[in-house]
Amino acid sequence: MNRFENKRILITGGTSGMGLEAAKMIVEEGGEVAVTGTTQDHLDEAGKALPSGSLVLRNDASDPEAAKELGAKVKEQMGAIDGLWLNAGYGKFGPTEEVEVDFFDNMHNVNVRGPVLQMAELMPALTDGGAVLLTSSVAPYLGQAEGAVYAATKGAVSALTRSWASALAPRDIRVNSVAPGPIDTNFMNGMGFSDDEKEQFLEQIQEQVPLGRLGTSKEAAQVALFLLSDQASYVSGSEYMVDGGMTMR
């Protein structure tokens, strides 16, 4: 199967987890990829995992100037892109009474302002008939006591998906979102949990998943690639849950 033959796809937050899994599969299916990340170890990992010719770019979604830099680099080195996955994200949980300005701003800047500014810069590079994907989350649907700010930022992503689907429809560009549940990635490392707290949290989460386990990065990436591919040519403004049935309870 060569769903991405002669296609160029950009994945922000694509140097680890499901973003990197997707990038590897795109290459296997005949496409070209560019991925962004912020930490050197993830950049190095992506550089080793992807073939020469793939773009591995340091770019921080929380930095408003970085969106302009990303737009310029994509235009210079790729010319145009057929698909865009705005996947860079950040999450942290904490009691409502402990929320401070930095706690809110750090998540809002990466999860909401980042994709908004990136979209503004990258929209001209998108080919007509292309596809855009955003990474939301099951968090807005769960009402977790200590996840209010994170859930709010991901709820905003879901709203952006629908608005952009309307805005880009005249260009036949589809816009969808994928909402992962508990996926076994390094995402939780930034949530501020100790090892014991992380283990306890994961046990509690798994008890809420009808399939009884965490999902894998590859399972999430496969859904993302469906939405980025022409197989989803009549899907736009939709959000696909990848959560083992978690949100149906």
Rank of each mutant, 00 (worst) to 15 (best):
F103M: 01
G114W: 01
F193H: 13
A80W: 15
Y240G: 04
G17S: 07
V116Q: 12
E121I: 01
A148M: 00
I11A: 11
Y150Q: 04
M78S: 08
H108V: 05
Q206P: 05
A179T: 00
G17K: 04
A139M: 01
G79E: 08
L122E: 00
A152V: 01
G31T: 01
R171H: 05
E5H: 10
G17L: 06
G192A: 08
G13L: 08
N176S: 04
G47R: 11
P182T: 05
P210Y: 07
E5W: 08
S217C: 13
L214D: 00
K48G: 10
V101H: 14
D128T: 00
V149W: 02
N87G: 06
S158T: 05
V99P: 03
G129K: 01
T12E: 06
V112R: 11
L126R: 00
K218R: 14
V101F: 13
S236D: 05
G215C: 02
D196S: 13
Q200A: 14
Y240M: 06
V101I: 13
T247W: 12
Q208G: 12
P182Q: 12
A148E: 00
P115A: 07
V209A: 12
S177W: 10
R249I: 15
E98D: 08
H108M: 03
F201V: 09
V223H: 12
L10N: 15
G143C: 03
V101K: 10
Q144L: 04
L214V: 03
T39G: 09
A224Y: 10
F201C: 09
G13Q: 13
E65K: 14
L86R: 10
R162Y: 12
M78D: 04
M241G: 10
P210M: 08
F93I: 06
K218W: 10
A151G: 00
L117F: 03
Q118L: 01
V116C: 14
Y141R: 06
S194I: 07
V132P: 00
T127F: 10
D102T: 05
G181Q: 05
Y90A: 12
V178F: 13
V223K: 13
I11F: 11
T96F: 11
T96H: 14
W85R: 08
D184C: 06
L70Y: 08
S54R: 08
T39Y: 10
Q204C: 12
Q206V: 10
T216Q: 09
T135I: 02
V138R: 07
